[in-house]
């Protein structure tokens, strides 16, 4: 089967047409998708107003411990002596003993300011994002403790495992230039 020169040319032409068509298709599809450009990069963040402190941030993240941490919006804090984020509801004594603290890892540091006020600091490396303190503070206090994705830890997965399992769909993509949804600025 010797192929004639003319046939070869026609074949080549058809092949190039198909190829160009497919290339244009891929390019057009990509361009259609990017017709509304989303800035430089998008990163994951959780909206503390939607968060119900279910505790999945601690367990669902691909990182162990989670890239989510508790943060403290000091300007919202009431500096309470009886802090519902710090103390267990059934705390026997209001002191720093581990059995009286909500935080299972003792990641909240309490610092005396003046009677009757205390300042609370998060020891971030210890925090596991279980959200117990956030629950106490949100339900009974000012809600100044809340969870945020920390961008020194988050590896910015294409699909966030916590976002997929978040019951209140509090996770969204935000522009990398403003990667936090800080409660004290949102409320």
């Amino acid at each position: 089967m010797n192929e004639k020169v003319g046939q070869v040319t026609r074949r080549n032409a058809v092949a190039w047409l198909l190829r160009a068509g497919a290339g244009a298709g891929v390019a057009a599809f990509a361009a259609l998708a990017a017709r509304r450009p989303a800035g430089d990069r998008m990163v994951w963040q959780l909206d503390p107003r939607k968060c119900i402190q279910c505790g999945r941030c601690e367990t669902a993240c691909v990182l162990q411990p989670s890239a989510v941490k508790c943060v403290h919006g000091y300007v919202m804090c009431g500096y309470c002596k009886l802090c519902f984020g710090y103390f267990k509801p059934d705390a026997a004594r209001l002191d720093e003993a581990a059995e009286n603290q909500t935080c299972p890892t003792g990641a909240i540091r309490r610092q005396f300011v003046e009677d009757p006020y205390f300042e609370y600091h998060i020891d971030e490396p210890l925090c596991t994002a279980c959200g117990l303190c956030v629950k106490g503070c949100t339900n009974f206090g000012n809600g100044s403790l809340y969870l945020q994705v920390r961008h020194d830890r988050c590896v910015n997965c294409n699909t966030c495992r916590i976002a997929e399992t978040c019951p209140s769909q509090a996770f969204t993509r935000v522009p990398a230039s403003q990667p936090y949804l800080l409660k004290e600025k949102l409320v």
Binding site: H72, Y74, M76, G78, Y79, C80, E114, G141, H151, V187
Partner: peptide
């Protein structure tokens, strides 16, 4: 939520610290 316990006026002149948040660095 944010008005349950108003932020106190400190007699000792304590200033409220600013929380810091690490930026996203590609």
């Amino acid at each position: 939520a944010n008005s349950r316990f108003p932020r106190p006026q400190f007699d000792s002149g304590h200033t409220v610290p600013q929380a810091t948040h690490p930026a996203f660095e590609a």
